[in-house]
């Protein structure tokens, strides 16, 4: 399994194949709904060097502060990225993001934006929050903690062999899950037939 350095180079991004399992090493920042909404609607975002910290990890981690003030990751399970699709493309373009890490997938808008910037979307393998926690080597800083709380705040992590994740969107705009969904759709008529649902059957509609 390949380990890809962060920030991801254009060349590395292009080399990743749809469905390939990889790990990543370097710096990333975290966020979820509130990051997306505030960055686009209010132009309010953490003052980070986004060229250097260029990987957006969709997560609401469980964080614990030690007595000496240092923050520890208790668990960091990627969260469902599809919820952010309304803002996904704008966020990718605004910060020129070449790596997104999350759960599930994103929609055609984000796929197009990733294609433009030459980026990839990585989706999680299984539930892996505890292993991922151990791969966070350092918690560098946190932004908007008081305003947003531990789950929605933006944390900057330094990670090593972080993963595994798989390439769910590549730099060509292909989406692993959309392709699989089309295969499932094609199987539906046969499945419905087996279930005894008459051909052309539809639910009773009572609205004009």
């Amino acid at each position: 399994m390949r380990d890809i350095k962060l920030p991801m180079s254009a060349e590395d991004a292009r080399s990743l194949e749809l469905g390939e399992m990889i790990t990543v090493s370097g710096l990333l920042f975290t966020g979820r709904s509130r990051f997306h909404i505030r960055a686009i609607e209010e132009n309010l975002f953490p003052p980070i060097d986004y060229e250097k910290v260029n990987c957006f990890f969709h997560v609401g981690p469980v964080m614990k502060q030690e007595e000496n003030g240092e923050w520890q990751v208790v668990s960091c399970e990627p969260t469902s990225s599809i919820r952010f699709e309304r803002y996904g493309a704008d966020v990718v373009r605004k910060f020129n993001l070449r790596t997104l890490i999350g759960k599930t997938t994103m929609g055609p808008g984000t796929a197009q934006a990733l294609k433009e910037v030459g980026g990839v979307y990585l989706s999680k393998i299984g539930l892996s929050g505890n292993a991922l926690r151990g791969q966070v080597k350092k918690v560098h800083e946190v932004h908007f903690l008081d305003e947003l709380g531990k789950t929605e705040a933006t944390w900057i992590y330094e990670v090593e062999n972080f993963g595994p994740f798989f390439v769910a969107m590549d730099t060509n705009g292909r989406n692993y899950f959309e392709e699989l969904a089309r295969e499932a759709d094609a199987k539906m008529p046969g499945i419905e037939k087996k279930l005894g649902i008459p051909e052309g059957y539809d639910y009773t509609e009572v609205n004009g």
Binding site: M21, V59, G60, P61, V62, V74, S75, C76, E77, T79, I125, G126, L127, S128, G129, N130, A131, R133, P164
Partner: peptide, 24 residues
């Protein structure tokens, strides 16, 4: 297979006192 293998390992480490079965 890997999705399930990783998820079961995650539950094992939670049971040993290291984290949660799932962070959510």
């Amino acid at each position: 297979k890997k999705h399930l293998e990783v998820s079961l390992q995650n539950a094992d480490s939670a049971e040993k006192g290291c984290g949660l079965v799932c962070a959510d």
